[in-house]
């Protein structure tokens, strides 16, 4: 690592209104700590109880979505370059008009990118009523999975945040893509 001007980084994060950012291995313990930090922060900020719950709910889904991506990537880990292996990044901060932003970035197999893109596009094309019935349909029909919630997470992020999900895929060499997801809570 080259020498970093940490004060510059601090100012940058302050300016961008970043509450928490992390890059590295995503473990269950890490996520527990993040939930605790955010809960404590909400207390300090005297955030509206209802909004706090919404934010917390979306946060859990976003981070666990990333966690499950990492988990399913484990078997292909040997093919990842050192800078990709086992790492992900996320940022939690404030956006325009006091909104909260949750941004996650992680590697996925490029062969899965189109399916994920389509899934989010379908969800983004739905209004609140459609999202609810889509969620119920998936909940009622999906098989019990030992991993995620059978694809319910993304629907729930859209439902609870009330905003479109922003995303980006960066195609990398060696069959991997970097997937970025942004959720906004007004």
């Amino acid at each position: 690592m080259a020498k970093i001007d940490l004060y510059h980084t601090y100012l940058q994060m302050e300016k961008e209104d970043i509450i928490l950012s992390f890059k590295g291995d995503i473990t269950k313990d890490l996520l527990s700590s993040v939930y605790q930090i955010i809960e404590a922060r909400m207390e300090v900020e005297h955030e509206d109880h209802k909004r706090k719950k919404k934010f917390y709910h979306v946060l859990v889904e976003c981070l666990q979505n990333m966690y499950h991506h990492m988990e399913s990537l484990q078997e292909h880990k040997g093919n990842l370059s050192p800078e990709q292996a086992g790492s992900a990044i996320f940022m939690i901060g404030k956006g325009a008009a006091g909104s909260y932003l949750i941004i996650t970035g992680n590697f996925i197999l490029t062969e899965n990118a189109d399916a994920l893109r389509n899934k989010i596009d379908v969800i983004n094309g739905m209004n609140a009523v459609e999202l609810k019935s889509y969620y119920l349909e998936k909940l009622g029909s999906a098989e019990l999975s030992d991993k995620g919630g059978a694809g319910l997470g993304i629907i729930d992020i859209a439902r609870k945040s009330g905003n479109k999900i922003e995303y980006d895929f960066q195609n990398l060499l060696d069959n991997f893509s970097f997937f970025t997801l942004t959720a906004t809570i007004n």
Partner: peptide, 13 residues
């Protein structure tokens, strides 16, 4: 107080 989507499936079960 809260439940995630992965729990929602189990609750239905």
């Amino acid at each position: 107080e809260y439940f995630n989507t992965s729990s929602s499936k189990c609750l239905l079960d």
